[in-house]
């Protein structure tokens, strides 16, 4: 990545498509400041009514897990099927459960 201070920084863009739904990551763009990032995101990612709210986050502000840590982080959930409702045997004839 270029760290040239003469370049506009990179922003990650999150769009909420409808009230009540989550903001979802759609991609990234370069802009000089947050306001410009929002305005550019409007043009780049919502030309067809894809959104009604925009979040912009400086790309450098995002920390993420590493692929090599995936097993350590996520494997422990594999053998805990009792966390799902289908794990349990319900008596025949019981309703609304």
């Amino acid at each position: 990545m270029s760290n040239n201070p003469n370049n506009w920084p990179l922003w990650e863009i999150f769009i909420q498509s409808k009230r009540g739904l989550e903001h979802k990551h759609v991609g990234s763009l370069h802009a000089a400041d947050p306001q410009m990032a929002i305005e550019n995101a409007r043009d780049v990612y919502t030309r067809r009514q894809e959104g009604q709210s925009i979040w912009v986050v400086p790309a450098g502000a995002i920390s993420s897990s590493q692929p090599e840590d995936a097993a350590m982080l996520f494997d422990p959930a594999d053998d805990k099927t009792y966390r799902h409702p289908t794990f349990y045997t319900m008596p025949e004839g019981a309703k609304y459960i």
């Binding site: 990545m1 270029s2 370049n7 990179l10 991609g27 763009l29 370069h30 043009d43 780049v44 030309r47």
Partner: peptide, 24 residues
């Protein structure tokens, strides 16, 4: 034509995730 500009931008972003800079 505005769509084509947008498509260019989606793709430049995708290229950037591979470690190239936009400037380059």
């Amino acid at each position: 034509v505005q769509d084509e500009a947008g498509h260019g931008l989606y793709l430049y972003s995708a290229a950037e995730t591979l470690g190239t800079s936009r400037e380059q």
